[in-house]
Design a protein around this nucleic acid. Structure first.
Ligand SMILES: [Zn+2]
Ligand SMILES: [Zn+2]
Ligand SMILES: [Zn+2]
Ligand SMILES: [Zn+2]
Lengths: 161, 161
DNA sequence: TTTTGCAATGTTATACTATAACAATCTGGG
DNA sequence: CCCAGATTGTTATAGTATAACATTGCAAAA
């Protein structure tokens, strides 16, 4: 997965992204004997609607367009999807995004554009190793890391003076 | 600053930590012609009360022991202190912690123990460089990064089976 | 097939985190 | 002193997330 393709072009076929994510989810849940119910599938679909982090209440609003729904519905689905490694929470934004590497064990690393809100999940070479080695020097044993980088994406940089 | 001293011993002289932080704050505000008011000073003191992240409403409760106070009081003080580089927000915990490197330009990096809640602000060798170089490969220009590592601290690891 | 028990969802209420808006007060420079 | 801007007070409300318990759905066991 070449890093230079981390950020999607605005004209890419996003339907394809969504389809692929849903297929991947079906597969993972089947293998792990977990139920990807219609509700959960729909939430995953909504989270994947864009390559941008989406708030839980934004998902809720969409759900409500097709019937009643309350916050616990969304949060339960998001929790399930996170546990299945299908969705990540972006802590610095209180928002959620579909995992680009579902099924592949990885530490989550995100580049987030503060201009257009586009997000790319990346795997920066040697970053996890450097982090783990550095933590070990402190005698610390890492279990889960939050790495969220805010800045300007290539698309927005191109449009700049 | 040796990384192996990142986590404080439970018997260290923490009054000294607090005094040093306050002196540092006075100095920084003086130089930058900003006012470290009694309110702001008190909030900084409360944030420094432990080497653990503290919630805004926990600070508020302490303030209320010495008179009336409302949420905006705390959030304003925290915002000021963050802008002055005296306090960091821990995004994954919605909590705040005193900066260990006030006055020294740095990217914030935290090791957080999920057992005892102790937190160490660290500067992992080459981590920022690795991150910036990796982002550059994506054509991304980083501005601010959130790096929070959850795991077990040396003290808690020692007490384990 | 019926039973049964757990998983999932519905529903209501509430906790927790943070900010908007405007009034009152304080502070330092002219 | 007087003013203008900064700071704080105060009330209300927005935004994020979970508790608690009722109901429904689903599949394995009998
Ligand atoms: Zn796409
Ligand atoms: Zn991922
Ligand atoms: Zn200390
Ligand atoms: Zn710091």
């Amino acid at each position: 997965m070449p890093l230079s393709l981390s950020f999607q072009q605005s004209d890419h076929n996003h339907e394809h992204c969504i389809e692929r994510a849903l297929e991947r989810a079906e597969e993972l849940c089947r293998v792990q004997r977990q139920r990807l119910t219609a509700q959960r599938r729909r939430v995953l679909e909504l989270v994947w609607a864009q390559h941008k982090p989406v708030g839980a209440y934004a998902v809720l609003e969409e759900l409500q367009k097709q019937g009643r729904a309350a916050p616990p519905t969304v949060y339960r689905a998001l929790e399930f999807l996170q546990q299945m490694g299908l969705v990540h929470k972006i802590e610095s934004l209180n928002a959620y995004v579909g995992c680009a590497f579902a099924g592949q064990p990885h530490d989550a690393q995100f580049l987030i554009c503060e201009q257009c809100d586009e997000l790319a999940e990346v795997e920066i070479p040697r970053l996890s190793e450097t982090l783990n080695e550095g933590a070990a020097i402190s005698g610390f044993e890492p279990r889960r890391s939050t790495i969220e980088v805010l800045g300007l994406c290539p698309n927005c940089l191109d449009l700049r003076p």
